[in-house]
Structures are given as structure tokens and as C-alpha cells.
Design a protein around this nucleic acid. Structure first.
Lengths: 253, 253
DNA sequence: ATTAAAATGATTAAATTTAATCATTTTAAT
DNA sequence: ATTAAAATGATTAAATTTAATCATTTTAAT
């Protein structure tokens, strides 16, 4: 396996120190400023850090952040369009459930000023939303899955089965008409399924690039959803097929 | 109450954008660079943000971070000394429970390379430790308390009562021989008490400045603890009193 | 061991950010 | 309405960071 190199050293330093200068990393790694800058360019291209003229941080969350105001008004990704549409379905006073994921995090970013209750399995979403006073946040609890930094396991499931949200937003890495929403581990599949259990409205938020792929465990059949929000890059045939299904298909963008 | 001013605007911008430049804030607030810098100096003095020459972030956690290498080797606070001592009591393979708080977060920072299991109520600790592969993290779940960004309520308590850690580290804002460890709300007191329930060793980590103050709810009597770790600023009389108690008193520093 | 490629470090100029200063505008008190 | 104090904005020089270039060192393949 990959050995512990200077890039790992920089990453570990960034994990412990919020905002860092090149100078600090020079001291921590005993490399030259030029080398550190070259490393930072690599890490930046990987998308794991953010840089300014004079500062570096780990991208703990808030992925693919446009950094200049120019960019804010263009380069909307599919996920952002999907999140826009999803957020519009939420009304003040609602209780909503947010599955772990970047699309659901995008939804979270759009509801910060709304008086609502949110239940989530995602540490990033919980921490992010808990900074806004109008929002009451509940995290389901349980063992933390390293890759997604979200809760998995029976403990969180038991909480989800006790709660009846107005809307449950579920994201995924793979979905298809045949296999439904699938997940790579049984644990993750179980939590995802629990999100769909008690909600009045169950909404899949998934971009078209994830369509027609699948992982080992089926979590939720598509006909369990009341709505699916996706982007406008599905092919015509698929579109036709999905429009005949019992759920409402929303095309964002 | 205070109205929504430019400082709030800056803070809200920082909550959504990880790493930010003065230029961005100029655009977001429609103020001049000079004004933004003056605001940032204020926020920096309040300790809520970190600055470099060219970047600003919110201090999401990792409090009172020394920013230059000089400072790393001096200015150790009492909390850090306490955390040093606490971390030394942890052995590879242990299961430990970490109460919410900055002292326990300091402990977390010292055990990142150790193969252990950690259970915590604190979102920051959970998120922080979940980035290190050797550590298995569990969060107790429940409603998030805004002020401490940690879990409170019955759901998390039920998890704590199912788990038997080797050591439970408990922090507090107020402690005394008479009233024990106290907390401002019943919810918080209950969670804290639950941390002390099942652990083999129950350790209070609290600096001396918090001694002899109290809040409304008593959470844990001092004689429930097996150890107390504090700093060397307790007065002689108190010291003598505490040394006669059944717990082991550790003085850090 | 030799060689070529890649990585690193030092140097310098260019770009960017900050601090200091002072004029102007806004706010708050009477 | 008037006045003083505070806040803000513009300008410029100083400080800091970055990018570019090239020499040197390290690494990997034969």
C-alpha cells in the first residue's frame, strides 16, 4: 500500500490545524516552500483542499465550492439544480429527513433560514445545520462510517423508525428501474431503507450519471418513492419508461 | 436583541464558505476592503475566526489553535496539560467515552494514532476522529444542542447505557465537593450522568477555574469518579480536602 | 555502477494583501 | 437642527506570498 509520504503529512497537519500557511507546512514537513506549493497544487487539483493567496484549509465539507463571485452565477452542477428543486418542496414548519451525501448537503445549504426540523445520519449536515438558529437538528447516532462520515447500524435505524417526517430526501450512488436504489454494504442499505420507512413523502435525489449502475445490496425499490428528482441528461427511452411509473418524475434544469 | 449587521453577514458567509478572501466578503457585504479588515480584526479578537495573510475561516473547532510554530512550544493552557495527562491513561485497544467539550476535544487530538474505539456525544469530536483510520467512532445520537453542538436527550442515553467503556472522560463547566458536577439544563445533566453509568473508570477532566461554581442541575457526585484530573492552581485548603476523597486526584503541570 | 527522469531547493521578479493615513459619511446625543 | 464621535472608504507604501527559472539532488531503471 502507499507509504506515508509528505502529502499524507500535509493532510494530517491540515486535519488538526484549521487554517494553515505555507510557512507552517514548511516547518512541519521540513521541505522548502517551493515543494510545499507544488504539493498544494496537487492536493488542490484532487479537490481535497482549498487555497487562497496565503492560506490553506482542508475541504471538510461544502464540496466544490465556487471561490470567486463570478463562478457563483455560472457552472451550476446537476447536483445543485437538483438541490434547488428539492429545497423548493420544503415548507416552513416541516420535519424533514436528510440521508447522507453531497446532494443532500446541497439541500441543507438552501434551507438555513427556514424554521424546520431536520433529522440526518450525516455528521457534516448535522454540524452545518446546527449553526443556524431556526433549525432543530437531530442526528440518528451509531457507528460512524469513515468513507461517508455518517451513522450506520441498528441504533440509528431504531430512531428513524420512531420518527415520521413530512419528507425524506434520499440520495444514492446507483439507481435503476430494475434494482432500485442500491448500496455497497448491508449497513448502508439498511439505513437508507429506514429513511424511506415512515416519511409521508419519499423523494430520491439522484443525478442521471448514477442511473443504471448498481451495488451489491438493494436498499429501496423505485416504486417506494413518491418523487424522483434528477437532471435533464437521461436518454429519451429511459425518460419514457420512468414517466410511466407511480412516482412523480421531476427534471431539474 | 442585536440586529443583523455586517458582522453577522460575514459570519453567515463564513458558515457556508469554508475558506474565504477579503475580496469575497467585500462583494458579499458591499463594504470596502478596509471595513472588512477592521471587522475581521474584531472577529479575530473574539476568537471566532482564523486569519492568514490572504485567507479567513471560521473556527469550527480546534479552539485556541497556536498558528505559528513559535507558539507551539509555549503558552500551553491548563486544558492542554490536563488533556496530556488524560491521554496518557489510554491504552491501545481501549474503548473510551468522551463527553462533549473543549477539554475532551483536546484529548481527542492526542489519540489520533492509537487503535481505539471512541464513543462521544460531541459532533466535533466525532467528525474529527472519524478522519483517522485507526479509530472507530460512535456518536450517541439525538437532538443537537446548539451551544455545545452535541447530542442530548433520551435516545443517546439509551445507547450509553448499552455500552461499557474502559474509561469515560467527563468534562464540565462547574464542579465542587458539595454539589458535584453540575450542568445548566436537565438534558445536559442527564447525558453527562449517563457517561458515568457503565464505565470501568470514570474520570473528571476539569480545570481549577471551574471549581466551586455550580449550575442548576447536579449531574454526578464527585465520589462517583475514580479519578479527577485538574491543574495546579487549586488553593491549598481545597487540595487537602480533595485528597482525602475516594477518587485519585491528578495534578497536571 | 551508470544514466535519465523526476523531484527538490534557491533565487528573483511579479502579484497580491495588508497597514497606515486622512478625508468623507453616517450615527447618536442633545 | 447642530455637533461630536464613530464608522467608512480611498489612497499609497510596505509587507507578504506566489510563480518562474534554473541548478542541484534524489530516485528508479537498466
Amino acid at each position: 500500500m502507499g507509504k506515508y509520504n509528505r502529502l499524507d503529512q500535509i493532510m494530517d497537519y491540515l486535519k488538526i490545524h484549521n487554517l494553515v500557511t505555507v510557512e507552517e507546512l514548511v516547518i512541519a514537513t521540513e521541505a522548502s516552500p517551493a515543494t510545499i506549493r507544488r504539493d498544494l497544487i496537487k492536493l488542490d487539483q484532487q479537490g481535497v483542499i482549498s487555497r487562497t493567496h496565503g492560506g490553506v484549509t482542508l475541504n471538510r465539507f461544502i464540496p466544490a465550492q465556487p471561490t470567486t463571485s463570478e463562478k457563483i452565477h455560472k457552472n451550476f452542477t446537476e447536483k445543485q439544480l437538483i438541490a434547488d428543486m428539492a429545497a423548493q418542496l420544503i415548507k416552513p414548519g416541516d420535519s424533514i429527513a436528510l440521508d447522507a451525501g453531497t446532494t443532500t448537503l446541497e439541500i441543507a445549504k438552501r434551507i438555513t433560514q427556514m424554521p424546520i426540523r431536520v433529522i440526518t445520519s450525516d455528521l457534516h449536515i448535522a454540524l452545518f445545520l446546527s449553526e443556524f438558529k431556526q433549525i432543530e437538528v437531530t442526528i440518528i447516532g451509531g457507528k460512524i462510517d469513515d468513507s461517508s462520515q455518517s451513522c450506520i447500524g441498528e441504533h440509528g435505524r431504531s430512531l428513524l423508525l420512531q420518527i415520521n417526517p413530512d419528507i425524506s430526501f434520499i440520495s444514492c450512488n446507483s439507481w435503476s428501474l430494475n434494482k432500485g436504489v442500491t448500496a455497497p454494504t448491508e449497513d448502508k442499505a439498511l439505513i437508507k431503507a429506514s429513511f424511506a420507512e415512515k416519511a409521508d413523502r419519499v423523494i430520491l435525489v439522484a443525478d442521471s450519471s448514477k442511473y443504471d449502475s448498481y451495488s451489491l445490496f438493494t436498499s429501496i425499490r423505485l416504486n417506494r418513492f413518491t418523487d424522483i428528482i434528477t437532471d435533464n441528461h437521461l436518454d429519451a427511452q429511459t425518460l419514457q419508461l420512468l414517466q410511466c411509473q407511480p412516482f412523480t418524475l421531476h427534471i431539474a434544469g
